[in-house]
């Protein structure tokens, strides 16, 4: 566990909340989502806009997994055993997007 529970006896009552990092993450997520809206309405759709959206989504995913799910505080081995299998997702994505384009060609 990344954090150890502080017992009543050791602290003399309930400890003060430590929520600074949580709220910082919240504002980052909210800010990125707001930025996504601005881009959605001001930028013409195209490969660049898609790339920006994907990049922002990955940044948001990083903050949710690292901060909210505390994966950042876990041991390295656990972090990698979660992240490395996701390589297969990238492979499937590339394979099927290419395949989709090919289906459109023969339709």
């Amino acid at each position: 566990m990344a954090h150890h529970p502080q017992h009543h006896a050791s602290t003399g009552g309930i400890a003060k909340p430590q929520t600074q990092a949580i709220w910082k993450t919240f504002w980052i997520l909210l800010g990125i989502t707001a930025l996504e809206f601005i881009i959605a309405f001001t930028m013409k759709s195209g490969p660049l806009r898609v790339a920006i959206f994907v990049g922002m989504t990955l940044v948001k995913a990083f903050y949710i997994v690292a901060e909210f799910m505390h994966l950042k505080g876990e041991v390295k081995f656990l972090i990698w055993s979660i992240l490395i299998p996701l390589v297969f997702v990238i492979w499937l994505l590339i394979a099927l997007i290419v395949e989709g384009g090919a289906i459109d060609q023969v339709r």
Partner: peptide, 21 residues
């Protein structure tokens, strides 16, 4: 926004749990 906000309140509940509050 609603879902992100509820994620924040969830992590606040986890934090409160660490303090046995």
């Amino acid at each position: 926004f609603v879902l992100i906000a509820s994620s924040v309140t969830m992590v606040l509940a986890v934090e409160a749990g660490h303090r046995n509050d």
